[in-house]
Amino acid sequence: MSADNSVECTLRKAVQQLQESGSDSPSLDAAVLLCHALDKPRSFLLTWPDKILESEQLNAFNALLQRRLTGEPVAYITGEREFWSLPLKVSPSTLIPRPDTERLVEIALDKALLNQGDILDLGTGTGAIALALASELPQRTVWGVDLKQEAQQLAQSNASLLNLTNTHFLFGSWFDPIESGTEFALIVSNPPYIEKNDPHLTQGDVRFEPMSALVAEEKGLADIKHIATLARSYLSEAGWLMFEHGFEQGEAVRELLVSLGYDQVETYKDYGDNDRVTIGQFHH
Rank of each mutant, 00 (worst) to 15 (best):
C9L: 13
D275S: 11
S23M: 01
L53R: 03
E54A: 11
T101H: 07
A155P: 07
V265A: 06
I279M: 13
K225E: 09
E244L: 04
R140K: 06
R67A: 04
D24T: 00
D275Q: 07
K13Y: 14
L186E: 06
A60D: 12
T229D: 12
A60L: 14
E195I: 06
A252Y: 11
S236I: 06
L186C: 07
Q249N: 07
V265P: 05
Q17S: 15
T70K: 06
A228G: 13
G204M: 04
L120A: 01
A63Q: 15
L260W: 03
K40H: 12
G123H: 09
T124W: 02
S173W: 12
H168K: 15
A108M: 05
M242P: 04
Q153D: 03
E102K: 02
R207L: 10
K40T: 05
L235A: 12
E183K: 10
A213P: 14
E150I: 09
T278Q: 06
E248D: 13
L214H: 09
L137G: 08
T126N: 01
R12K: 13
P99E: 03
L241P: 12
L64P: 13
Q19L: 02
G117Y: 01
P99G: 02
D100T: 10
D273W: 14
F44P: 10
L221H: 09
I187D: 03
I279C: 15
C9H: 02
S23I: 00
T94F: 00
C35W: 13
R207P: 06
L241T: 00
Q149P: 14
L65P: 13
I194A: 03
L147C: 06
L133S: 04
S91M: 10
S189M: 03
L11H: 09
D110G: 11
Q264D: 14
T124L: 12
H245E: 10
H200I: 06
R42C: 10
V142C: 03
F44W: 10
E251L: 09
F83Y: 15
S157K: 12
I227S: 11
E237L: 12
Q264L: 08
L64D: 06
V15N: 02
E82Y: 02
S180M: 08
Q152E: 07
P210A: 02
R254D: 15
Q116M: 09
